[in-house]
Amino acid sequence: MSDSVTHFDKAIDEAEKYLAAQKRRQTVSLAIRYTILTVVGLIMLYPLIWLVGASFKSNTEIFAGAGFMPVNPTTDGYVEGWQTSTPYTFGRFFWNTFLIIAPKTICTVISCTVVAYGFARFDFPGKKILFATVIGTLLLPNVVTRIPQYLLFRDLGWLDSYLPLWVPSAFAGDAFFVFMLLQFLRSIPRDMEEAARVDGATSFQALIYVVVPMLVPAMISVALFQFMWTMNDFLGPLIYVSSVDKFPVSLALKLSIDTAESFEWNRILAMSVLTLLPSLLVFFLSQKYFVEGISAGGVKG
């Protein structure tokens, strides 16, 4: 009897030792993995970190070394950069950017939702051809349509206004978003809409009261993408906007490179940092919906 008890004790002892060793191994492997990930992550993030650091350096110090910590931190870049070489401060350019982004984003969300709903839920003559056309524009390089578009907007007398930037998005001009919402809509069963129609809703009421609330994550993704892309858009404003007082930040940054004979890099970098902030802020605020929307839509961002 006692023999078997000691035998058990021994077995338990061995098992515990084995488990302890296994745990140790796991800890070590975890430490190695995290170290590698951290190092690689830092390498990838370094340019960004450097950018932030350099925006606090003086103009001469920027080219002195690759280190990101400023020796004599100064906010000169921010103060002077904000003033710009034009009669306007950078605040004006931020405001202009907002004036472009806000209508564009709202228009995109509304128009793309309506178009995607139409394609996803209704049968109408020519649906296949129309849908193929929409997807076709997705594959078409933007550059191809630049010149005809420019001529069109010129004849409409829309040059040097924000209309050429707004109007295409008000007519679901961004096929990518239509496609993304469509994929999301396809994953939503129709039963709820049918229930709404039995409850007496028109197609439009079903869209507003039933479909849209379910579509919110995807719509937020669309809004975010449009926000970031518009924030970063350089070519669009460059082509259509010519007065400095209407410039968005993307053009304003370029402006400071153009006018100064010796570039004030610290100002440019400081303003670049500020330009990054809105996108980052919006992204982090709505990260939850954003990821949900992309993954549920089956579209990679």
Binding site: P189, D191, Y209, M214
Partner: peptide, 10 residues
Amino acid sequence: MVFQNYALYP
């Protein structure tokens, strides 16, 4: 109408 998978508005 009552649907198979309830179809309640989520």
